[in-house]
Design a protein around this nucleic acid. Sequence first.
DNA 1: CTGAATTCGGACCGAAGAAGTCGGATATTG
DNA 2: CAATATCCGACTTCTTCGGTCCGAATTCAG
Lengths: 157, 157
Amino acid sequence: MLKLTKKADYGLMALKYLAEHPETPALSAKDVADAYGIPAQLLAKILQLLTKNGLLRSHAGMNGGYALARDARQISAYEVILAIDGPFFITSCIKGAKSCELTPSCTIKEPLARVNDTIAGVLKSISIQDLAEHEQPAARAHGDRVQAAHGLVALTL
Amino acid sequence: MLKLTKKADYGLMALKYLAEHPETPALSAKDVADAYGIPAQLLAKILQLLTKNGLLRSHAGMNGGYALARDARQISAYEVILAIDGPFFITSCIKGAKSCELTPSCTIKEPLARVNDTIAGVLKSISIQDLAEHEQPAARAHGDRVQAAHGLVALTL
DNA sequence: CTGAATTCGGACCGAAGAAGTCGGATATTG
DNA sequence: CAATATCCGACTTCTTCGGTCCGAATTCAG
């Protein structure tokens, strides 16, 4: 449990691949799929999702394909996962809805919501660029929740 | 995505409930299930799992039931989730297996493995006790990866 | 203009896992 | 013995994930 879907994995891989090939104006879904052995049709739909969410720019027609909509540093893993799998919450009971439908006594999620935020913070601190140069990803400052400090991230818990 | 199963939720709730009732020698699965409106038979199996993994002590027969095997402070949310849902890895490709079977070029997981460790660290730092007294859970020191410091946890990334 | 390459978008399907149920065996106590 | 429990495996149901297929619309090259 607690694992990413393959689609999210594929999406991250594809973005990483695009980030590694900044010279080419656009890469087709097939290009990327072949590079990783991913089913092309599936990846196509994933890339469509990413473009719809503003992470990629698409261009149809011959020599068309996809390209990053922003600099690789400006795209976080969080955004990618969010775009592909939708909003995630570590607790089954969605935080937005007023408490648990049938289990109002579920006081568990309050502390777990904090864990959820922590995970989101970590994911937000990782950019596609970090994945591309797969050395130690330098943690980036992000709001007041995550702050870079000598190569480690301080998370308020 | 990235959410706990209901079973894990139930397990955490049950342990929390037990932690809140230290006076009683044992609580039956039905007792806990009724308290939260959880299907009793399902919770029963979950509690069995937890006993099998040494988190609970069980006692059959009349006035039997379950009790925490250790102090609530000595049981981490991580252990509970691990016992119920098995080992989790954020990446689809299991870290143990030698790389990705068909996609050897999956360099994504290396950075994500670090995220995985981070999540595990946070989960390990939360005890059942923290859930029971659902105030700010005091972060506990844990290994050299997670270190408590003025109410916040420092995580090496 | 025609055709190839490519994105787009929906419908569809099979497999896997999650959630929950059922039934029976065993242990413990009164 | 009877009531209360844990124990344990098999089974159903439901949802989601992973993946495929097909029929468009778009763009470019010749």
